[in-house]
Design a binder for these strands. Structure first.
Lengths: 355, 355
DNA sequence: GTTTAGCACTCTCGGCCTTAGAGTGCCAAG
DNA sequence: CTTGGCACTCTAAGGCCGAGAGTGCTAAAC
């Protein structure tokens, strides 16, 4: 059962019938995209009530801020607050079909090269299944273990560092050195680091080297000098930067709700603007279970007509990242939520197998 | 001087005045985006001609297929054929300002990790400067030299291969082996390969190994068996896959010409659909200088209202890739062409320095 | 022969009105 | 509390009209 935490505040109690009507209204609106009138709702609700009665209830719901009329004589549309209540209390989320789960599993269990590729694949998958935009933060670990390091001289003062981390993550960076090093020196340094630190967390590596540097100062032999200069620069920045992958943006162009071209453009630009979304995702990192942001709850004004459904994925209790989809507020939550939830679990499982 | 090869056919000669009028009309249309009428053109042309005369000329140009009226009483708009003639024969391309070139150079000369990153950066740059979508094919070389190879055991039958190619391109792939190998065996194999083949083209490596395999058959010692199995799989596929990077797609949402949401969506999907565009770019690989595709000249119906301006970039006569921009047919060719041209040259220079 | 003025014609665009339809709010009766 | 009735409001779509822009054609001028 996903915990769908309310981000916005608390709701005064509504009587059973009123809640039911709100539920039916939201469901209907999600299906049709048209404001729902009293007659329609009377028919859909399955209660023996006349449109007039329904009208009274709807007027109440509007007063309480759950509904909104686009104009005097259109039906009602849920407000953000209405969606919130719907999701928190009214929506029932059917579990995903076994066959569907199987399909997802098969697509996720493809062998891939590294975290980023996996993220891309899963993001693609999410967007394909939900027909919305899929987002996956690339897995990042609090404890990154060094598996292997290699130094290759490129030119005078430039050295290529190849870093193998964790299970199969390979990174490379180029560093500027103060003096030229020979291939032999570099080799020795790498050998030393590998022998000493392979399997250790890179935090530890950094600390150990710092200690060595302080204690021994300039009594270092040439080998250790090389080691220290290399390592200093190599481990300067955190090796696994935060990042995410978006796929299926084009789906957002199809849903009529987001037809305002200019809004859409801003949204797309937000996708490229990394930092905005990252900050949002950080919030989700430590909530467990599915989280949903409706409209501006997410903090950014570009997301006005959008909802974001996210779930963190964890391995052995350690949160590795967040994934989710982004689409119009008027989305089929009853399908999207289980898809996101299951995908997160499957991704976690896939990462677990890899290790 | 860019060679702007005509892809479409040959044009019957038009007299001087007619050509001039076509030129002015296209320029005006590119500026305003409004169909150009006879009165406007009479004023703009700088010839002492009445609108009536202009009308006659425009009627001729329409008959010849260079112009088109949206309806009876709007001005004229260039057809694809009209643009073609304009670009091939009428447009004069001013060289880029020195300061502007300097700005481009500085942005391209940033140090980067590998070809893909560089492509991303240049693509970003192109799109930023032209306010269109930028596309850069990641550099690929006919002769890829092996610089260094490393094997790391991951699990039972999986080995991580780290390949350093050319100047600073690092690739990694995971291969499945028939039997488990120890770290020591793998190390020896890597050492052997590095000793034997570092600096050689991978084509040569592949051939040499094949020869060894045939000649010596099962008289191979254990080391060589390891070497051969590793190398076989490592060099099976070409290490540098074709790929490209697109940036600034959102710019295309701003230009009024492409306001049809559905067309735009298809265009965006084409960007993700790699293979379509790759095939187009392959054509440009061996044409030297700037090439321009107008509308459906590019072969795809999604590109109806678009033009593509491309240029290959080469190092020492070897074509490494293609870059360019894609935007509405109604774009400022006189600016875009030199930008694309210069960027190609600068990228080539940057790659040259790296080697 | 080319250029030009004149003129009738065509087409779009915006504003305005009208109508049909949907839905509401309120009131008074059940 | 529920309901039928009713007046009211608002939108969406269609039709109409006039202004404006631009054309093609013709006949006269150069």
């Amino acid at each position: 059962m996903p915990s769908r935490d309310s981000v916005a505040g608390h709701h005064p109690s509504l009587n059973e019938r009123t809640q039911h009507l709100l539920k039916v209204l939201v469901e209907r609106y999600i299906r049709d995209g048209q404001p729902v009138g009293s007659r329609t709702l009377a028919r859909d609700a399955g209660l023996e009530l006349s449109p007039a009665t329904i009208r009274n209830v709807m007027a109440d719901l509007e007063d309480l801020g759950y509904l909104h009329s686009p104009h005097t004589s259109a039906g009602r549309v849920p407000t953000a607050r209405g969606y919130r209540l719907f999701i928190d209390a009214l929506l029932n989320v059917p579990p995903l079909d076994h066959r569907e789960v199987e399909i997802l599993r098969r697509r996720i269990d493809q062998p891939v090269q590294n975290g980023a590729d996996l993220a891309r694949a899963v993001s693609d998958l999410l967007s394909g299944v939900t027909r919305l935009a899929g987002i996956v933060m690339v897995p990042r670990r609090n404890v990154v273990t060094l598996r292997h390091v290699e130094f290759l001289p490129l030119s005078e003062n430039r050295v290529l560092v190849v870093l193998v981390l964790n299970a199969q993550e390979v990174q490379n960076r180029i560093i500027q050195t103060r003096r030229p090093y020979t291939a032999l020196e570099l080799n020795r340094a790498a050998q030393y680091l590998n022998g000493q630190f392979a399997g250790k967390g890179i935090q530890q590596v950094r600390e150990a080297l710092l200690r060595d540097l302080r204690e021994t100062r300039d009594s270092l032999d040439r080998l250790m000098q090389t080691v220290v200069e290399m390592a200093e620069q190599t481990f300067e920045t955190d090796p696994v930067g935060e990042d995410y992958v978006v796929a299926g943006q084009t789906h957002l162009m199809q849903c009529a709700d987001l037809s305002d071209l200019d809004k859409l453009r801003q949204l797309f630009e937000a996708f490229n603007h990394k930092s905005d979304l990252l900050h949002l995702f950080d919030q989700c990192l430590h909530a467990d279970g599915v989280q949903i942001f409706i409209g501006e709850e997410a903090g950014s004004s570009v997301l006005q007509e959008c909802s974001i459904v996210t779930a963190p994925y964890t391995v052995e209790g350690q949160v590795l990242g967040v994934l989710g989809v982004i689409g119009p507020t008027r989305m089929a939550y009853d399908r999207v939520i289980p898809v996101v939830e299951v995908t997160a679990r499957l991704l976690a499982a896939a990462l677990n197998d890899q290790d």
